[in-house]
Design a protein around this nucleic acid. Structure first.
Length: 436
DNA sequence: ATAGCCTTGAGG
DNA sequence: CCTCAAGGCTAT
């Protein structure tokens, strides 16, 4: 490989111009033959005879402020924003052409910059999300039009959760009062398939801002707390979990993920630093619990880890708190059954847990509450987007109930945590759990 | 990781 | 409409 690479480097170094001209000539020939057949008149100027300023390959036009080929465009997009600086294995002056361009990313990137490609023209994470929000918004409109055009038929009445149009205001009041409505807890113990989404035409549309916000936290969640932990080093037998302190230390990765998660949220960065710490600390145990739900497998009564399953029985033998175990598993089963594997819902719940106005030591409780309200509304609107308004209302209440419940359970867990010997706990976990 | 091809919003 | 220039997707 390195032989080839070196060969390529020296080869191209001695005849880079030849390569460039060869490409140019073949390009011209190609164009002429095409043009003679298609447009004999304007053969000279019609098709692009543009060449990539980086490698000399055929170019379609400007990319990031310079004329480049598709591959150099993609290359620049992938690499220009990386903060890790690549280093050239040679002298930093490798010749880049269509065949050698892959061998020295460093010099290729340098040449990109030399010919004037601008890294600030690469859309940032935020701008990309805006763009995607716009795309999906338009897509939804398109599909909406399609449905409306095809529809033109009277509404179908087979779905009872459609309490929308005609008598909306009265019906919602009546429903909330009516006694025959199943209690939310019962309603969601088992997912009522019959009430799941169909017929999207009369559901709420999220605004672009809401859509973007939801995307933001969902992506952040998926990339952090929602992802599985790195494969743990040795064989992860159950002996790794036979003490409380080993459980705690095992949670360290999850806590790091939580920190990464909050740092990705613009709303979290906006609150003052003391409250950031306070809300972070008070949401750690809840977060671990929520994680345990996310990776819980109802059918097997176990948790999925990168190294395989861990039976929930291990927790019972570890803590020797049967009641704690029971309530935890019950919680896993119930929340999992209503949320399933919906990452957006997990992300929303996670967010609501973090922006908790009555957490310990919060200074600006009003402000915290305002932020939480924002996500409460987002959750509500998301549910109304996904389901009928009536169904969403019950769903909303059920989820709020579960969020309240998670706090009680985590309080119980906190008591167990106080039993551990601080000497056995990693410093970060000591700090974050206030165990010192 | 690369690179070709596709989709798309903005702007003309 | 049409073109330009972004990002996305995916076979290699």
């Amino acid at each position: 490989m390195s032989d080839d690479l070196q060969l390529m480097m020296s080869e191209s170094g001695s005849e880079s111009l030849d390569t460039f001209q060869d490409l140019g000539e073949s390009d011209d020939c190609h164009d002429m033959s095409m043009d003679e057949h298609e447009h004999p008149r304007k053969r000279l100027k019609s098709k692009d005879d543009k060449l990539c300023g980086v490698c000399g390959d055929r170019a379609l036009g400007y990319n990031f402020n310079a004329i480049t080929c598709e591959s150099c465009k993609a290359f620049f997009r992938r690499n220009a924003l990386k903060k890790k600086k690549m280093k050239c294995l040679f002298r930093g002056n490798c010749i880049i052409d269509v065949r050698t361009r892959r061998f020295c990313p460093c010099c290729r990137l340098q040449k990109c910059l030399d010919i004037g490609m601008k890294e600030n023209m690469i859309l940032g994470e935020h701008e990309k999300r805006l763009r995607m929000a716009k795309v999906t918004e338009n897509r939804m409109k398109r599909e909406e039009r399609g449905k409306v055009m095809i529809k033109e038929e009277p509404l179908d009445y087979d779905m009872q959760p459609m309490a929308d149009s005609s008598n909306a205001c009265s019906s919602s009041v009546m429903d909330s009062q009516s006694s025959n409505a199943p209690s939310p807890a019962d309603l969601f113990e088992h997912i009522p398939e019959s009430m799941m989404p169909t017929d999207p035409t009369s559901y709420r549309q999220l605004t672009p801002e809401e859509h973007e916000l939801l995307e933001e936290i969902t992506i952040a969640y998926r990339e952090t707390v929602g992802s599985s932990l790195p494969k743990n080093d040795p064989k992860q037998d159950e002996s790794h979990f036979n003490t409380v302190s080993s459980w705690v230390n095992n949670s360290e990765f999850a806590v790091r993920r939580l920190i990464k998660f909050v740092k990705k949220m613009a709303d979290f960065c906006r609150i003052n630093q003391e409250d950031q710490i306070a809300s972070l600390k008070s949401s750690v145990v809840n977060t671990l619990l929520l994680r345990s739900v996310a990776f819980y497998i109802v059918e097997r009564d176990s948790w999925m880890t990168p190294n395989g399953e861990i039976s929930t029985k291990v927790l019972k033998t570890t803590t020797r708190h049967g009641d704690l175990y029971d309530s935890h598993i019950k919680y896993c089963r119930s929340l999992k059954s209503i949320v399933n594997n919906n990452t957006k819902l997990f992300a929303l719940i996670q967010t609501l847990i973090i922006f908790n106005p009555d957490a310990q030591n919060i200074r600006a409780r009003d402000e915290m509450s305002n932020v939480q309200d924002k996500y409460l509304i987002l959750l509500k609107h998301y549910l109304e987007h996904e389901y009928s308004f009536e169904f969403a209302k019950n769903y909303f209440v059920a989820i709020l109930g579960k969020i309240y419940e998670i706090k009680k359970i985590s309080d119980n867990h906190a008591k167990v945590l106080l039993q551990v010997d601080p000497a056995e706990i990693e410093p970060i976990m000591l700090e974050i759990l206030n165990l010192k």
